[in-house]
Design a protein around this nucleic acid. Sequence first.
DNA 1: GCGAGACTCTCCGGTAAGGGGAGACGCCAC
DNA 2: GTGGCGTCTCCCCTTACCGGAGAGTCTCGC
Lengths: 274, 274
Amino acid sequence: MALFLSIGDFSRATHLTVKTLRHYHELGLLEPADVDPATGYRRYSVGQIPAAQVIRRFRELGMPLEEIRTVMAAPDLGTRNRHIAAHLSRLEEELGRTQRAVASLRALLTPSDADAVADISLREVPGASAAAITETVDMRDGAAWMQGALGELYATVAGQGLAQTGPAGGLFSEPVFTEHYGESTIFVPCDGPVRPMGRVRPISVPAAELAVIEHAGPPIESDRAYGALAAYVSRHALAVQGQIREYYLVGQRDTAEVARWRTEVCWPVFRVGS
Amino acid sequence: MALFLSIGDFSRATHLTVKTLRHYHELGLLEPADVDPATGYRRYSVGQIPAAQVIRRFRELGMPLEEIRTVMAAPDLGTRNRHIAAHLSRLEEELGRTQRAVASLRALLTPSDADAVADISLREVPGASAAAITETVDMRDGAAWMQGALGELYATVAGQGLAQTGPAGGLFSEPVFTEHYGESTIFVPCDGPVRPMGRVRPISVPAAELAVIEHAGPPIESDRAYGALAAYVSRHALAVQGQIREYYLVGQRDTAEVARWRTEVCWPVFRVGS
DNA sequence: GCGAGACTCTCCGGTAAGGGGAGACGCCAC
DNA sequence: GTGGCGTCTCCCCTTACCGGAGAGTCTCGC
């Protein structure tokens, strides 16, 4: 029986490409039965077809060549099985990772009913110039500080003859929420150059993409809104490091009836989905 | 405000390694706000932290850098979402592949009850020398041919004064099953050198790892056994190209009662599991 | 015996997403 | 001015091959 095959024939017999076979030869994973010393031509025996097929099967199952080599060289079933089991658990881990990634991506693209109920919207806001007061404050005194700052801002803007171009707002750094103490800014957008006066300074409120939820009642009671927003953002958007923002649509200046105040809580995100 | 960060600080702020940041710079995916022309030092602005975090999130979800670049450059939600959806479906595909691989590997390692019922075993058989008759036959005449060959073999072995060292058997190439016509060998293992005589030639039956099922009744009715064995091998072993083998444990020479014949059907495999 | 076309050889370079390290230079505090 | 970091560029390494260049080999037909 003619039992030797050229690399091309062996390739067709095993469905491994010629390149792959040469690669396996180089690695010593599957050495041809014989190499012609004059021409360098590889010759494979038909008896090597089974080994080649086993290698191909393991490759289809994603096993690295090094591990395949170990498995094929292992004389006893126990060693073989240990390596196969090790590969299996690696695959299972990868499976879990991929599943989580798929779930995340799906959540990004498909808004759930719960979010619709919570009435969260995504919005792109342009940058704006504003008069602002920035201080590091203890948020236990937050409400009082905020009202004082707002009063000073309104007075300064009016005193400099500037027109307000949108609702007042606030910018809060992360420690404000994690440690109830941190840098906070209250601002009033206005149309002209602000001259520094008292605590008031000009700033430019940066453009941003925001996830927005509206909260009715005193701003200090906005924790439910924050919770809903954070839950939404963590599942359906790409949270982005940046200052949390509030816009005071209806506040002290509009009505003394605190229950009618309306505040927008805004979380910076990278917009995708809906 | 001091808004510029060295690459080290930016790395700590974004949890991207310095190497990774340089790589993204080189690709133009995330360019530092400024590069000192004298020293080459990169400086990042705090405003770039969000972009870096978005990139990191997408990388954690396995998105290729090229696609991240496209997503981040896309001005409208539709384009962003299309690319994210494309990545999602790629991931789902990969998920399916990994799931199938995991299932395959698990099946290799854990024999099922069905296999125990089918009574399949794995066995390693050493090589053996034998007297054999090899011909290309039409399997519609298989039973008759086989009995004739067996008779001639037994006669020749006895005539040459050789001792039989195991049950007679057969080796069948693939076309025998797919086209009912192909090269078949019937052999009787024996302990000495066989002199060619008539159709009889010496061969060495190669060593092999075999999945084995036992079939009771005439060999011609072994299709159920073949089905069970093939099902087993495809799920719980690594089938290997090689000749299918049969061993005739109890046959014509032992009893005329065909129902008491016993045949082992053997499929070459790469042994793993149980 | 010779030429065409198919086959094979080695070597080089490329892939994705960075990691590791060498050697040189910059920055800051003491 | 000096020691200890931080940063720079440049090069090689990883996995499992694929693509191609340029040269040599085999086989078939004439």
